[in-house]
Design a protein around this nucleic acid. Structure first.
Lengths: 123, 123
DNA sequence: GTATGGCTTCACGTCAGCGTGAAGGTCAAG
DNA sequence: CTTGACCTTCACGCTGACGTGAAGCCATAC
């Protein structure tokens, strides 16, 4: 599977796929002419990577996840995953915090719009 | 109040405060020697800016918010605010979406850890 | 006077995830 | 043999919120 093909199937740009290779997230085989030759299973991997990037994870974290997932396929109990779970928990927490702050901000704004009162903020 | 003082009080770096000035978020008076002279009320404004940046708002949006808030102190009904409310709504929506995706990602990871089964993802 | 420390203005560096040419090799078709 | 669509590797550009010197002025202490 050539890069353009995978790009079209997954909806990810060819440039992004090369970027994933630079980041060692998805390193395909090479044909004799130097062209990247992706496996069918890589469609799934790209979807995973897409989802994790959209979730706000950095490539370094995603790389760890993929390594951990590969280890898991051997049947062992995924030693690295607890750290990743912690990472995901902390990211979820940060998102929660951001959302809470956003709600406060929005509340203050609404308050201003209706009352036109004094400005106030929590530290 | 000098920049270093405000920096220490608010926990925001002096560099960041100068950046806020470049972005026209907080433009202090100047002493005869050219030093920035912040008002006491700016402590609150910095806290607001901090909160909004942490909430994921860009400086351009924050500037609009601050202008709108200033207008509000005159007693008028804040014409610009509806646009900002929409902006905040959309940001809240994006955060919700990210959180949902993150939860899915985390679920998939948990699934892998317990089952060590086949990789799967939703497009 | 001078040592210190805070202040000033440039202005390039950083991180992340790509976008966007540039310059050129590969391959099937006409 | 040439066109044209695909591929390759650089390598700079972009957005955002600053970090980090560099070079120099200001103010207080000794």
């Amino acid at each position: 599977m050539l890069i353009g093909e995978l790009a079209e199937v997954t909806g990810v740009s060819a440039r992004a796929l090369r970027h994933y290779e630079d980041q060692e997230l998805l390193v395909p085989e090479r044909d004799t002419n130097g062209y990247r030759n992706y496996a069918e299973a890589d469609v799934i991997r790209v979807a995973q990577i897409k989802a994790m990037i959209a979730a706000g994870l950095g490539t370094a974290t995603i790389r760890q996840y993929l390594e951990c997932a590969r280890t898991g396929e051997h049947g062992t109990t995924l030693e690295l995953c607890p750290r990743l779970t912690a990472e995901l928990e902390s990211l979820a927490g940060r998102l929660d915090a951001r959302q809470a702050e956003l709600r406060d901000t929005r509340r203050r704004l609404s308050g201003l719009a209706s009352r036109s009162s004094e400005l106030s903020a929590s530290a």
